[in-house]
């Protein structure tokens, strides 16, 4: 079983976010990067399947700065990494296209991607890639059962419902967070990762479908803010609850 996993080196939305001076991009100052949270689950799922059934896990990263995330995946237990040193910015088409080119000589049974990236929240790359490769797809998987030549996936719907579907391999599956408990990187893992292959594949993107006109802070209706030290805040909250007859 050979599994390709797409892993994005992405800024954490909990870090300090502001718009850059061009008014069209996110300011890099204050951003903290790490492996995209959904991709962490995808890498873990692939490694678990490999540990159970044998095979290989190949992790693919896009971007000139994605080394740390690829090394982290190798330290978790991926076998080798492919780095595509292209900054594709916002356009998921471009990202999917360069990945398609970079993996064209790889034979694989499955491609895993996180359901979405934590910074752009597009939820597109995995599905676009499936369409470009003409492969069946399932998104938001919360449980996978891999059998000979097929995968049974449970995918998340609304309201706590799940849908069970069956796909032949090769196929593309996007992974929902919570599908497993991703392992921590061990010292041994980091040591072993040093001898693992990280291959750079240069691809020039040709497609561009979107143009960013403007990036800005969303207009928000603000809550009435309660200020003071914790004791004063608690006092005021109690007053509000009393007024409403909640205590």
């Amino acid at each position: 079983m050979k599994i390709i996993v797409l892993a994005k080196h992405a800024p954490d939305p909990e870090s300090e976010i502001s718009v850059a001076s061009d008014g069209k991009s996110v300011s890099q100052s204050g951003l903290v990067y790490d492996i995209n949270d959904w991709d962490r689950y995808a890498v873990e799922e692939a490694i678990r399947i490999k540990e159970d059934k044998g095979g290989e896990v190949v992790v693919v990263g896009v971007g000139t700065n994605c080394d740390d995330t690829l090394r982290k995946c190798l330290a978790m237990g991926a076998d080798r990494a492919i780095k595509i040193p292209v900054d594709t910015s916002f356009d998921a088409y471009t990202t999917a296209e360069v990945i398609k080119e970079a993996i064209k000589d790889e034979q694989f049974d499955m491609i895993f991607a996180g359901l979405m990236s934590q910074d752009l929240n597009n939820a597109q790359v995995g599905v676009l890639l499936a369409a470009m490769l003409d492969l069946p797809v399932a998104t938001a998987a919360t449980e996978l059962k891999v059998e000979d030549g097929k995968v049974i996936a449970r995918r998340e719907l609304e309201g706590g419902y799940l849908e069970e579907v069956e796909l032949p391999t090769p196929c593309v599956i996007t992974i929902q967070s919570g599908i497993n408990e991703p392992r921590y990187v061990s010292i041994m893992g980091i040591k072993r990762a040093k001898s693992k292959e990280m291959k750079e594949v240069s691809v020039s993107p040709s497609i561009s479908t979107l143009e960013i006109e403007k990036m800005y802070l969303p207009p928000v209706k603000k809550a009435e803010m309660i200020e003071g030290d914790p004791s004063q805040v608690a006092e005021k909250l109690i007053e509000i609850l009393k007024e409403r007859g909640l205590i």
Partner: peptide, 15 residues
């Protein structure tokens, strides 16, 4: 929205 709701973007779809 992007960044889990902290930023907004206006996009032009080219075709």
């Amino acid at each position: 929205y992007l960044m889990q709701g902290k930023l907004m973007v206006d996009l032009k779809l080219k075709s």
